[in-house]
């Protein structure tokens, strides 16, 4: 059976992105947490970046897997 490694990588990035985005949203109003990063909500920004990247990789991986399975049939 062919397994596209992009699927598990995409899952990992999506998971981390979700956790980071949720944490960023929850601590958005807390100025203490973001005094280090000059007031920017870095958790939210990078969480969204990772989320988008993860979903992109996951989609590409699923597409690759579908293609392989179609060739097999």
């Amino acid at each position: 059976m062919f397994y596209d490694p992009r699927i598990s990588l995409g899952m990992l990035f999506t998971l981390i992105g979700t956790v980071l985005t949720a944490f960023g949203l929850a601590t958005r109003s807390n100025a203490d947490v973001y005094s280090k990063s000059m007031g920017i909500d870095a958790n939210l920004c990078w969480g969204l970046v990772l989320l988008v990247f993860g979903i992109l990789v996951l989609t590409l991986g699923r597409r690759g897997q579908m293609k392989q399975e179609k060739i097999k049939k």
Binding site: V33, S37, M38, A42, N43
Partner: peptide, 9 residues
């Protein structure tokens, strides 16, 4: 520079 959360990652 990184806030708690992103720092751990």
């Amino acid at each position: 520079f990184l806030p708690a959360g992103l720092l751990g990652l």
